[in-house]
C-alpha cells in the first residue's frame, strides 16, 4: 500500500522481516528475545500486546536499531540491520522510523513546533519528505499538529511542559509522523491517558497512519484495542523466551 507520500521504500511489501531473532542482555540470564518469525507488511497497523517485562521494549529497541541484533535475521525495509554499524543504524532510524514513548516524549526546552521538527534536523531524508508537503518544516509541523487537533496558537506558544499529557502525546505523534517515515513504533503511548483520551488518541493515530500509509507497530499490555487494528500479535506467543504462561506458539490472527 503506497501512501500519498510514498517513496520507493514504501512500495516494498515487507517492512519487518524477522527470522530466528535472539537477544540476550549481557548479564547472562539467557535470551529475553527469541522470535522464530515476525513479518509486518507495508501499511499494516499491528497491535503487539503482552505483559510488562516480557521483552517488548527490547524488541522495539531492536526494530528501532538502537539495540544491535545478536543472532538471527532482522531486516527492515529490505535492509539487514545486523550488518549495519551503529551510526548506520542511527541514520536508518532517523530516516525511516518514528517513535512514540509511553511518557516524557518531548524535549522540555524546545517549543511544540521545534519538538515536532526534531526528526528533520537529524534526517535530510525526512526533511526532504516534509518539504515536499509544505514550504517549510515548521509549516509541515503545524500541518501535522492541525491534523492531530492541536492547532491552537495558544497551545503552540506554550512551553511543552505545560501541555496536558494528552496534548503531549499528540505532539509526539506528530513528531513520529513528520517526514513520512516508513514505520512508527509506539511504546504504550496511551497508558498514561484516561479512557476517553485513549480512544481519541488512538483514533487519530490510526487514521493518520492509514491516510499516510505508514506502518504502525503499537505496543500495549492492553489487548482491548485489538478490534481497531489490522492485526494483533500476542507477544507471549511470539517470543519463545517470554516467561509468560502461554509458551505455546499461537497462530497469529488477522482481523482486518
Amino acid at each position: 500500500m503506497a501512501g500519498p507520500m510514498g517513496g520507493t521504500l514504501r512500495e516494498r511489501d515487507m517492512i519487518v522481516d524477522v527470522v530466528d531473532l535472539q537477544y540476550a542482555w549481557r548479564n547472562g540470564t539467557g535470551p529475553v528475545i527469541d522470535i522464530p518469525s515476525l513479518r509486518i507488511d507495508a501499511g499494516e497497523r499491528v497491535l503487539l500486546w503482552g505483559p510488562s517485562g516480557s521483552g517488548k521494549s527490547t524488541l522495539l529497541g531492536l526494530l528501532g536499531g538502537v539495540v544491535p541484533p545478536q543472532q538471527g535475521r532482522l531486516r527492515l525495509l529490505g535492509q539487514d540491520l545486523a550488518r549495519m554499524r551503529g551510526p548506520q543504524r542511527d541514520r536508518f532510524r532517523a530516516d525511516h522510523i518514528g517513535v512514540i514513548f509511553q511518557l516524557f516524549n518531548l524535549v522540555p526546552y524546545l517549543s511544540v513546533v521545534e519538538n515536532v521538527t526534531l526528526p528533520c534536523r537529524f534526517s535530510s531524508h525526512r526533511r526532504a519528505n516534509a518539504l515536499r508537503q509544505s514550504s517549510s518544516i515548521e509549516r509541515e509541523a503545524i500541518r501535522w499538529l492541525t491534523a492531530l487537533e492541536l492547532s491552537d496558537r495558544e497551545i503552540l506558544d506554550r512551553p511543552v511542559v505545560e501541555l496536558s499529557v494528552g496534548q503531549q502525546q499528540r505532539v509526539a505523534a506528530a513528531r513520529a509522523l513528520i517526514g513520512a517515515p516508513a514505520m512508527v513504533l509506539a511504546d504504550e503511548p496511551t497508558s498514561a491517558l484516561d479512557a476517553d483520551l485513549k480512544e481519541a488518541f488512538l483514533g487519530l493515530l490510526l487514521n493518520e497512519c492509514a491516510r499516510e500509509g505508514t506502518t504502525l507497530l503499537f505496543v500495549s499490555h492492553d489487548r482491548s484495542f485489538l478490534p481497531r487494528f489490522d492485526r494483533g500479535v500476542d507477544f507471549a506467543a511470539l517470543n519463545r523466551a517470554c516467561p509468560g504462561p502461554s509458551a505455546e506458539p499461537v497462530p497469529r490472527r488477522r482481523i482486518a
Binding site: G64, V66, G86, P87, D90, R91, R93, A94, D95, V99, F101, F104, N105, L106, V107, P108, L118, P119, R121, F122, S123, R175
Partner: peptide
C-alpha cells in the same frame, strides 16, 4: 536521560 532517549529515538547516536 529522558531527553537523550528522545534524541536517540529521532536519530542521534550515542556519540552525538
Amino acid at each position: 536521560r529522558r531527553e537523550m532517549a528522545i534524541l536517540r529515538a529521532v536519530g542521534a547516536g550515542p556519540l552525538d
